[in-house]
Computed example of a mutant assay.
Amino acid sequence: MQLAFCLYKYFPYGGMQRDFRRIALTCQARGHTIRVYALEWQGEVPPGFDLVRVPVRALTNPGCYRKFTAWVQADLARRPVDRIVGFNKMPGLDVYFAADPCFAEKARSLRNPLYRLTRRYRHFAAYEHAVFAPESKTEILTISAMQQPLFARHYGTPARRFHLLPPGIASDRRAPPDAAEIRAAFRSEFGLGADDLLLVQIGSGFRTKGVDRSLRALAALPEALARRTRLIVIGQDDPKPFRLQAAALGLGERVQFLKGRDDIPRFLLGADLLIHPAYAEAAGMVLLEAVVAGLPVLTTAACGYAHYINDADAGVVIPEPFTQTALDEALAKVLGDPKTRARLQRNALAFAERTDLYSQPERAADIILGRRG
């Protein structure tokens, strides 16, 4: 079959983008042809992918997305395909990969009511409706059980159209036999002593991922613990406002910001705790990447994959509604107790052995390729 994959922006380090790549490669490995429509593409194009950079521009993102949709639909009318798979919400999809949380729920719970009068709201609400309305034919691949009831409540989407996928953690995230040696080399490279503690926060979109919360929690540590604790934040975003916040909190050189990179497994093995206090996250792949590496996790219940941390007893999940005090206290407690961290590490590695955290691409390909038009 000829498959068309649609996404607005591709860069190598985004969670949704990595899901797209692995699912598309799995479909290709089964003998199908891959065409990709994208506004922006960073990084290498996989061999055999027909990448179509959609040549539209607009003053606003909604305007650009409307032009993208129109251009793609016109091109598909000239060059039809067997399946249209979207990784962003848009009209005309056969299959949608639900990487983003419910927009209608966020608009009502996190925004001023006046926001619903804006053009931006109307655009994203209409595109979400096109996917989830009862009359839509789009099949929906979900990565978090907590999101389905929200979509169903706002749109009345039939349950039969939802397909809950297992996570798709890449095998290179699992702790290898020489994990101890990799950890020692990493900590030597970054100047970490035996008593030093390293927090890592990994993910693009620093505001949504709660980097501001992490900085406040680091600043609130007891002095004796604070002196030996560092934070490294990794992702594709502008770190300037968070550097200013760190400076205002007196964190100095204890915080480092790095761009997205390919050696994330080294950081997962070299750190002492993953901190991920996100405001909203449909899934949170990095939570499970930490688990399979044996790294304890401190996160929020707003993340779709947070329940895995509880299931594995591999960390601490801050309940909703979030309070900064709860995060501050949990961080101090976990960092200050090496026995607790060792127990959480053992639990994480055991959970990674007995649980299917890896087969998302194969299951997604089954549904995409088996869908009836």
Rank of each mutant, 00 (worst) to 15 (best):
K9I: 14
K9M: 11
P12S: 10
Y13F: 15
G14Q: 12
G15T: 14
M16P: 08
D19M: 14
D19G: 13
R22A: 15
R22I: 07
I23T: 13
T26P: 08
A29H: 13
R30E: 14
T33Y: 07
V36I: 10
Y37P: 02
G43Q: 10
V45N: 06
G48N: 07
F49H: 11
L51R: 05
L51A: 06
R53T: 11
A58F: 06
A58L: 05
P62A: 08
P62S: 08
C64Y: 08
K67E: 14
F68V: 03
F68K: 03
A70T: 12
R79Y: 08
V81L: 06
R83P: 05
I84T: 15
K89C: 14
L93D: 05
D94S: 13
D100F: 10
D100L: 07
F103G: 00
F103R: 01
A104Q: 10
K106E: 15
A107C: 11
N112Q: 12
L114I: 12
Y115G: 07
R116G: 11
R116W: 09
L117R: 13
R119Y: 09
H123W: 15
A133N: 03
A133R: 04
S136I: 09
K137Y: 02
I143T: 05
M146L: 14
F151N: 05
R153E: 12
R153V: 04
T157S: 07
P158H: 09
P158S: 06
R160P: 00
R160H: 13
R161N: 03
R161Y: 04
F162Q: 04
L164I: 01
I169K: 04
A170M: 05
D172T: 06
R173N: 15
P176D: 12
P176K: 09
D178S: 09
R183D: 01
A184M: 10
E189G: 12
G191F: 11
A194I: 00
D195M: 03
L199D: 12
R207Q: 13
D212M: 06
R216Q: 13
P222G: 01
L225W: 01
A226Q: 12
L231Q: 06
G235T: 05
D237L: 00
P239R: 07
K240V: 11
L249C: 05
G250N: 03
G252T: 01
G252Y: 02
E253Y: 00
R254T: 06
V255C: 02
F257A: 07
G260S: 11
D263V: 10
I264E: 09
R266C: 09
F267P: 01
G270S: 05
A271G: 08
D272Q: 07
L273M: 10
I275D: 11
P277T: 03
A278N: 02
A280V: 12
G284C: 04
L287C: 02
L288T: 00
E289M: 06
V291T: 15
A293K: 07
A293D: 00
P296R: 05
V297F: 00
T299F: 00
A302Q: 03
G304N: 00
Y305S: 09
H307M: 04
D311C: 02
D313P: 05
D313E: 11
A314P: 02
I318R: 02
P319F: 10
P319H: 10
T323S: 15
T323W: 06
A326W: 07
A326V: 00
A330G: 00
L331C: 00
L335G: 03
D337C: 08
P338C: 11
K339V: 09
T340Q: 15
R341I: 08
R341N: 04
R341M: 15
L349R: 10
A350K: 08
A352W: 05
G370C: 10
